[in-house]
Design a protein around this nucleic acid. Structure first.
Lengths: 296, 296
DNA sequence: TTTAAAATTATCATATAGTGGAATGTTTAT
DNA sequence: ATAAACATTCCACTATATGATAATTTTAAA
């Protein structure tokens, strides 16, 4: 049993509410007291109503309870991507083993997918990584799962964002479309919506760098326009300028990629100008380097 | 009892996990089945672990459970501010009465504060509003509460953002400082951090429009710089361009307000240019109108 | 300090959350 | 079509969440 009651008591006291006032209409005073002291667990239904009456929500409550740390899932993705960015191979291996152990213990496949995500990171970062191709088989398992799920939530989107790099372009096109469609109901939920946007951006960037196997030349124009149109029409409200700046940059890259070098360069230079105007110098420099690279 | 179990079952099935796999290490299979069918409530501790194993968090789970609607608190603030923006006096009155009834029923003061928030909206929107000054007394109650609370969370910040307009400038300065300091631990929590940023912006805008009672002239330069510095140094990472654009605009207004008309106008014009470059025409137009107004 | 009122805790009774295992239903393979 | 393997439900039982009431502690006023 976890002693959530103590956190509840702290919050209640802060707001100057008595046991009686809080319990009224929800549960008995004596029980609330017992729960707050850590002498009893509590039913989900009761807890929901108590939290509502305290003008809170579960997320914030648990965030405080865990000493101002995000929930476990978010922390997992965060730790993994931090280790990746720091090229911390040891940490990555450790994380992976943790997930694999859980997978073996419970047989729950999602732990397997998590391990796979980390393996992708590993294969990029680790020089000594023995390239068994990040198991074709595993990748099929993962994409099968993503195709099967009917609603994509935070987990699926974030997982996909992390593993997309390892897939074949045609697979990415299909999956990203699926992701976009099957996460529609979350469009009002900021945390998930941000992941949807990220999927679209990652897809476009990935396709810009891909070459069609059969034609040996750049032929994803149609698809890239498709995903750009998703971004333009739905995912980016006027108030989300950061995404709009990125989009401008991507459009520029697209122009260059499709032979329209002049116009593309102009767009990217405009992006850099915008960022410098807002003192976002790091971002501006990154894009400048990118421009030099892509022009060759 | 609320039948959360049915939602859980749906999610579990989606992920292709069996009762046994999910229950393993957490609770018995038979109980999980019972819970999922809606035949039993569940303990908070168990539910937490089940949700974690499903790679979810409470917020997202409840969002789905409530048919893809946000939690009650968020919905309250949203409904209120929508009614305000639509100048829907009837809706506002209705909302207010709901909160007042709860206040009377339980004696919990937070309901009272909520009612007060709506009254502020009402007093602005409603032509027939009888100005009893939105009770001095009530306002004191509210600010007393805000001073008293040791940690400002989503509720306090959002409440303050809505009522700030009715306070005296000196009060706003003190409270905004308090808000900034006492919400420090939430800086990594996006939803709350967004509210912190909003408080700082609202404070600056409010002070730009205020005149010191004693000097009968504009004398909040020092304070405005203080809040701008909060925004610059901590609250706005490079990637948050929208806030940076707003900030540029505010700095322009500040320049104009302090007599530096030329430089200020230049900054605001730059803001408008940036927004137009990104096709954010509505925002650009709004600021243009604002510029015309302020220059007089 | 004294005292009354309010807020919290302790005690015990009972409703219900949660377990183990047998029975039933469902899928898969031969 | 049938058995075998697996997933879920049913039932009897135990542990514990929750309520009613009394006892204690805290707060506030005189």
């Amino acid at each position: 049993m976890v002693e959530y009651g103590k956190t509840l008591r702290m919050i209640r006291k802060q707001k100057g509410i008595t046991l009686k006032q809080l319990a009224d209409g929800i549960c008995s005073v004596s029980f609330l007291s017992k729960f707050e002291r850590g002498d009893s667990d509590i039913t989900l239904s009761l807890m929901t109503r108590l939290i509502e009456k305290l003008m809170m929500n579960f997320d914030e409550f648990l965030y405080i309870h865990h000493d101002y740390q995000p929930d476990q899932l978010e922390q997992f993705f965060k730790t993994a991507s931090t280790a990746y960015l720091n090229r911390d191979v040891k940490q990555l291996k450790q994380l992976k083993n943790g997930q694999i152990n859980k997978w073996k213990q419970y047989g729950v496949e999602t732990y397997h997918y998590n391990a796979l995500l980390i393996e992708v990171y590993e294969s990029i970062v680790d020089k000594d990584y023995i390239d068994e191709g990040v198991q074709e088989n595993d990748i099929r398992l993962l994409s099968d799962y993503l195709f099967r799920v009917e609603v994509w939530g935070y987990y699926e989107l974030t997982l996909y964002n992390g593993t997309l790099l390892l897939l074949k372009p045609d697979m990415v096109i299909m999956l990203s479309r699926t992701a976009y469609e099957k996460s529609a109901r979350f469009r009002e939920y900021k945390k998930v919506d941000d992941e949807i946007t990220a999927v679209l951006f990652n897809t476009i960037i990935f396709l810009l760098g891909s070459v069609n196997r059969f034609h040996e030349e750049f032929t994803y124009q149609k698809e890239i326009s498709e995903f750009i149109s998703y971004l333009e029409t739905i995912a980016i409200p006027e108030s989300n300028l950061t995404e709009r700046v990125y989009l401008l940059q991507l459009k520029g890259s697209y122009d260059i990629r499709t032979g329209n070098k002049e116009e593309g360069t102009a767009k990217i230079k405009q992006t850099i100008q915008l960022l410098n105007d807002l003192n976002a110098t790091k971002m501006a420099n990154n894009i400048e380097q990118y421009l030099v690279q892509i022009i060759q």
